[in-house]
Computed example of a mutant assay.
Amino acid sequence: MFALTNTITRSAALRQGLLAAANRQVSLKVVPVESTVKDESYFEKNERLGRKVSPHLTIYQPQLTSILSITHRGTGMALGVGVWALGLGALISSHDISHYVTIVEGLQLSDAQLTAIKFIIAYPAGFHTANGIRHLLWDTGRFLKIKEVYSTGYAMLAASFVLSGILALL
């Protein structure tokens, strides 16, 4: 450290620069706070500068592709939360599954009601599976033209209802 400092102070140009900086006059101007704080909001500033608002869900008309994409994410989250809830419930519950089956049987639901409840529970799995297969087909480079995207979207919806119905009837 001493050798570096000693070398720097031997430099005539550096010594002149340090002396000039030491002799420089600096003055401060007192400015009222009100003049530095802007009263315009973020949106007002962007409007003044001509910046457009970024498009969002409220700008676009709902399309099959966007609805299916949002639903795919939602069913994935629902399945994840459901698996975690069942797993944690099984860990902390003092009863086994037969206890809960007895409770459901005690509700005396009709076959139609029970099938409807099973369909509602099975639909996220059916939808997510069918749409996942559609995405895997897209990963191979197939069905990427807009007409094919829509036709596979409708076919996937039909397949998800059929798959969920089969699961509900088991």
Rank of each mutant, 00 (worst) to 15 (best):
I59H: 14
D96A: 12
T65V: 08
A22P: 00
Y60S: 07
Q25T: 13
R73T: 04
G74Q: 09
T115P: 04
L68M: 13
K118S: 07
T36K: 12
T115C: 08
V53Y: 08
A125S: 14
L68F: 09
V81Y: 12
S93V: 14
L64W: 01
S110R: 02
V31W: 04
Q108W: 10
T36Q: 10
G50H: 02
I97H: 10
S66Y: 05
V31N: 13
T115I: 09
W84R: 11
K38N: 04
L64N: 05
F127E: 01
L57T: 00
S98C: 05
A21T: 06
W138I: 01
M77I: 13
A90M: 11
L19R: 15
G87D: 04
Y42P: 02
I133N: 00
A21H: 03
I117F: 10
L64V: 13
D111C: 03
Y42M: 09
G89S: 08
A21E: 05
K45N: 13
P55L: 02
K38C: 00
R24W: 05
H95W: 07
W138Y: 03
Q113I: 04
G132D: 02
W138L: 03
L107C: 00
S98V: 03
S98Q: 12
A78Q: 11
G132C: 09
G76V: 08
V37R: 14
S69D: 15
I121F: 06
R73V: 07
A22C: 08
G89M: 08
H128V: 04
T140P: 00
Q63Y: 01
F43I: 02
V81N: 11
A112Q: 10
V53K: 06
F127Q: 00
H56F: 07
F127A: 03
L137R: 07
S35F: 07
S93Y: 12
V26W: 10
T115M: 15
L136M: 15
A20D: 14
I103M: 10
T75A: 01
I92S: 11
K38G: 00
I133Y: 01
P55K: 10
F43G: 06
R48D: 11
I67R: 01
T140F: 03
S66T: 06
L137F: 15
V33I: 12
H95A: 13
D139M: 09
G89I: 12
H56M: 01
H56R: 12
H56V: 01
S41Q: 08
A22I: 12
L19A: 15
I120S: 10
T115Y: 09
T36F: 09
L49W: 03
A78H: 14
V101F: 07
S93L: 11
V26Q: 07
H72I: 03
T129Y: 01
D96Y: 13
T71L: 11
R73F: 09
Y60W: 10
P124H: 00
G17I: 07
L57N: 05
L18W: 15
S27G: 12
E105S: 06
L18Q: 09
G76L: 10
V83Y: 06
I103F: 06
V26L: 11
T102I: 06
Q61Y: 03
L88V: 13
V81P: 08
V37L: 10
L68K: 13
G87A: 12
P32K: 14
F119T: 03
T75E: 03
L136K: 02
N46K: 13
L49H: 11
